[in-house]
């Protein structure tokens, strides 16, 4: 097919389309209207996520919590149901659920006198039981264990959970060598005091959860332990660190910072330490885009619908499947080149 043929084909474009393209005002108005529509949809989705998270948080705290009773039998049975399956299965035990929901669960206000919200600080020793219920409710993706009796505690309905962010998945849990460790009658209260498995091995942390926390620049830099650069973009809204911890206790031994997100009004750029992830988040799906001496992978909903019909994913992997991976998720209307410019602006040198 030569260019002459193409030239003839484009020269035959319908006259009505040609005239239509010259009506700049009309087209510009449609661009504006579409931009506004997308922004509203984006804002509405965000608001819905916040409302869902708040409702879920209130629901959790309005339920009778085992933690408000002495941390003995009730918490033993419930925690056994929750945490044992993850050690018995080879499936990723530390499926990392959405962060916002966990954070909301911890910080959600409640008027219930039985809920010790004011005590929701993760360094209180007696609070392992407090945090544990939240941890179990934010890992709904975990498949049921086959080696364990069915849990008596109803897992939360997924439809009530708030939307989940891009979900990095930690490596599979190591199957315990001691069969007695799988015994559901063992007091699981001792689990939080188990020796930490180390920062690079969240798989050894049964019941681990991923918690996103909004922090300042210095705190993000210190937590991520990489020389991240500050962001001064006009749409920038803040930093969020993603902490993998046992049962949501971000200050517990073995918890570690897996990622840091630069959040913007229309999306976010996430930096993930793939060495700590113990796996690769690099993906070559989508269109390769060479820009400013770097290779980006642009995934539109056509390529990879799981990011949503209104989202676009741009990946940049300077050291491929090790080191820090950069992934941006933005509204599909966002300018890809602006996204790449933003990613380059936050690239660590």
């Amino acid at each position: 097919m030569n260019s002459r043929m193409l030239l003839l084909a484009v020269a035959g474009i319908d006259e009505s389309y040609v005239r239509e393209s010259e009506r700049s005002d009309e087209v510009a108005a449609e661009f504006r209207a579409n931009r506004i529509r997308k922004r509203r949809a984006f804002a509405a989705a965000g608001a819905a996520a916040v409302v869902c998270a708040a409702v879920l948080g209130v629901m959790r705290f309005t339920r009778p919590l085992p933690s408000v009773t002495p941390p003995s039998e009730s918490s033993v049975s419930q925690t056994a149901d929750r945490s044992e399956p993850s050690s018995a299965e080879e499936d990723p035990a530390v499926t990392v659920p959405g962060a916002a929901e966990k954070e909301d669960a911890i910080t959600a206000p409640t008027g219930e006198p039985t809920a010790p919200v004011g005590n929701e600080t993760s360094d209180a020793p007696s609070r392992s039981g407090d945090v544990a219920p939240s941890a179990s409710t934010v890992t709904p993706d975990r498949p049921p264990a086959t080696a364990e009796p069915p849990s008596t505690e109803k897992t939360p309905d997924r439809t009530t959970s708030p939307p989940v962010d891009a979900v990095p998945t930690a490596p599979p849990a190591t199957r315990p060598t001691d069969p007695s460790a799988e015994n559901p009658t063992d007091p699981p209260a001792a689990r939080p005091t188990d020796p930490p498995s180390g920062n690079g091995d969240p798989g050894g942390t049964p019941g681990a959860v991923f918690t996103k926390r909004s922090v300042g620049y210095e705190e993000a830099k210190a937590a991520f332990a990489h020389p991240i650069v500050p962001c001064y973009d006009g749409n920038f809204t803040g930093y969020q660190v993603g902490i993998v911890s046992r049962n949501g206790d971000v200050n517990a031994d073995g918890s570690f910072c897996l990622s840091v997100d630069y959040t913007f009004s229309d999306g976010h750029i996430g930096l993930t330490d793939q060495d700590r992830l113990g796996g690769s988040s690099a993906s070559t799906l989508g269109e390769v885009c060479e820009y400013r001496g770097r290779t980006f992978y642009v995934q539109t909903p056509d390529d990879y619908g799981s990011y949503g019909a209104d989202s676009i994913l741009v990946g940049y992997y300077p050291t491929w499947d090790s080191g820090v991976a950069y992934q941006a998720v933005f509204d599909t209307d966002a300018d890809i080149y602006e996204i790449m410019d933003r990613m380059i602006a936050v690239e660590m040198t």
């Binding site: 193409l6 484009v10 393209s21 087209v27």
Partner: peptide
Amino acid sequence: AEELKEALNGFLSSLSLRDRAVFVRRYYF
């Protein structure tokens, strides 16, 4: 070229006004 032209017009009719207008400006003008 005729078949290609028809296909191209069929494709353009499936686009939104804004996408179509941008395409025409780029490849017609």
